[in-house]
Nucleic acid binder design. Structure first.
Lengths: 217, 217
DNA sequence: GCTATTTTTTAGTCTTATCTAAAAATATTT
DNA sequence: AAATATTTTTAGATAAGACTAAAAAATAGC
């Protein structure tokens, strides 16, 4: 049995280390989980004992195949629940994260797969993140960060990297949503800000914001 | 904050003591929760400190108004999730209990109330148990135990008291479902068994089974 | 009304997941 | 490459929730 806490660590390692393939440092995990390095060391040892992680002292962690699958299934659940909340229960995309964080730990294979069917087998969550399938696989969205575009380039807003409530509320306030057509008009080297044009208007976005916007061409 | 464990104790006290109004013994709770009396004493003290329960040493527990509401909301969530699982996710009524037991602890008022709306504000769960409203109130189903009927009496199967997987599978196997018209044909005093007739056939049920069947007239 | 039995509580232990503080190992600077 | 700084690990402590065993209180039996 994988505990709730273990699942959260698996998820963190998966996200920080390219699906757990690249070694992740103790401190990086501690920061992500909002805990202390010593707690992380303890938990990593436990995951290694359970054959979910590969751990060599002082050299970070990667996930075993079993660990990778376990992490992917938690992420699958998280993202499916997010779709459910938005599509079926009238949540907006800035309200789903905390609830999905709880729902992702519910244990029932039938539940996940029926939910998947109810939602019509979605491939992406409300933030544009891909939903792993039953085997933990997904085809990562081929989108590029908006900062890589040049003036004149345009595409569709396909993914937002930050799912925090503050960031998503900013996008709401400025009428930016997934699927919007966006054109880059100007790049300002002084502060890396960007002038963009949507179907409704022109606006300037800071590099902080731009870093989190991904465009499919 | 009410923890998962505390919620389970509140639920047990609510169920065992007529919504927490009648004192429940330590042992009764221990048996329901499948724990030990000493653990129960500890937890009851904690609930009392949090003003969720009224506790006098050696004299059992009742719930405070706050405790009663908290318990009712957990039960509300449990039963709404059961309806969801059956109506939307193709679960059968013998498969829902364990999953609902997990889902009932998810914290989000919006989630519960939107779920309620999605399901069309159901008043009863798949076992015929009433679903408390936001204030924790419900009108108990006026159904009687089938053993109280006399030969010749008939009515509709409205509620099953045992929600265990074995019992529900027995009913499935014998084609008995909520809403079925049932007529009592004969009562056997030797073993308290009952001959009943449904629209499809006649059958004999033991008193063990009969104890759990409730009929609305 | 006094034993005997049952129930409940207390006291002390265990596990899980955290933490702080100190020690050990690794990285960085000069 | 020695000294300093940073990161990671270890050791020991704490809180929640559960347990066992023993003590205390309540209930039942005669």
């Amino acid at each position: 049995m994988v505990t709730l806490s273990e699942e959260n660590y698996l998820k963190a390692i998966y996200h920080l280390g390219k699906q757990g393939t690249v070694a992740v440092s103790t401190n990086a995990i501690a920061e992500k989980i909002e805990s202390k390095a010593s707690s992380v060391t303890d938990m990593i040892k436990k995951l290694a004992e359970k054959k979910l992680a590969n751990y060599i002292k002082y050299q970070g962690v990667t996930l075993t195949e079993a660990g990778r699958l376990a992490a992917a299934l938690v992420i699958r659940k998280h993202r499916l629940w997010e779709v459910f909340l938005v599509e079926k229960l009238n949540f907006s995309w800035d309200e789903v994260h905390d609830v999905a964080e709880q729902l992702e730990h519910i244990k029932s294979l039938k539940l996940v797969n029926e939910l998947d069917a109810l939602l019509g087998f979605p491939t992406h969550d409300p933030h544009g993140d891909p939903i792993p399938d039953k085997e933990g696989n997904y085809s990562p969205l081929k989108s590029v960060n908006i900062l890589e575009l040049k003036p004149g380039d345009e595409g569709v807003l396909a993914q937002v990297k930050d799912s925090s409530d503050v960031f998503l509320k900013y996008l709401n306030k400025n009428n930016l949503a997934l699927g919007d057509q966006i054109k880059v008009l100007d790049f300002e080297p002084f502060d890396n800000s960007l002038t963009i044009e949507t179907t409704s208007r022109k606006m300037i976005i800071s590099s902080e914001v731009a870093k989190n916007l991904y465009i499919s061409l």
